[in-house]
Computed example of a mutant assay.
Amino acid sequence: MIISSDTPTRLTLIHRPVALLAALMAAAGLLVFLAGYNVHLGNSGRALLILLLILALLGPCLWFGMERVQVSFDATAGTCTIDIRRLTGSTVETLPLADIAKAMVQTHKGQSDSNDAHRVALVLGENRTENRRPLTTGYSTGPGAARAVDRINDWLKAQRGSARA
């Protein structure tokens, strides 16, 4: 997630997996090329298998690749709005800022030597599994989730400090 707006009264983060979408499009293009090449060579069975593979992978790839999430913390309204847009439609969820205890990093362990993947989640109330609200469907590698969590927690802390003063 990247921070698109950061003011004392509003913090907005956006998740658009552009690199993932580009990689998925490149892989699909390569598979289409391989299918066409196999047709050219007369290997229609192999070409059909490659096209079936494309169809099987296309749905989940587009689901994750086309997801757009915008999270806006608004101190003036006292709300956190989570706007999710996918191929299947849009959803908007509004949470009271007072219900958000903190943000945290959720980690998916990679197999053996592979990198771990992370995503941002909000803790609503007590820090128990059922109270964690992930902001994205997928996980990604790199420090982006940790940076977003740090900024959200700092912003929430500043809001709670100014509310007491």
Rank of each mutant, 00 (worst) to 15 (best):
C61Y: 00
A148L: 13
A26E: 03
T7D: 05
A121I: 04
R160L: 08
A23W: 00
G59H: 08
L49R: 05
V123T: 06
L52P: 02
A146R: 01
L48W: 10
T107V: 09
A47N: 10
N131S: 14
D6T: 02
L97Q: 03
A47T: 10
M104K: 14
R151Y: 02
A19E: 09
V120C: 02
D154L: 07
G142T: 10
T94W: 01
L30K: 07
L95W: 03
F73W: 01
G42D: 06
I100S: 11
R10E: 09
N153K: 02
S162R: 15
P96I: 12
T88L: 07
V120L: 08
V105K: 02
Q159P: 01
I3F: 02
M25T: 10
D6F: 03
I50M: 05
W63Q: 06
L55A: 15
S162P: 04
Y37C: 04
R164P: 00
S114H: 12
C80D: 04
L20K: 10
S114Q: 14
R132E: 13
E93G: 04
R160W: 10
L52D: 02
A27K: 00
T9I: 02
L51F: 15
T91W: 10
R151N: 03
A28P: 08
A146C: 02
T81A: 14
M25F: 11
I50A: 04
V18H: 11
L31R: 13
H108V: 11
P17E: 12
E93I: 10
R10S: 12
F64H: 12
I84K: 09
G36Y: 08
V32Y: 12
V18L: 11
G110P: 05
A22C: 11
G89R: 10
N131Q: 13
A145T: 05
N115M: 08
R86E: 07
V39Y: 12
G144S: 10
N127F: 03
D113I: 07
D113S: 11
D83C: 01
D83H: 15
E93T: 13
L21H: 10
L13Y: 13
G36I: 09
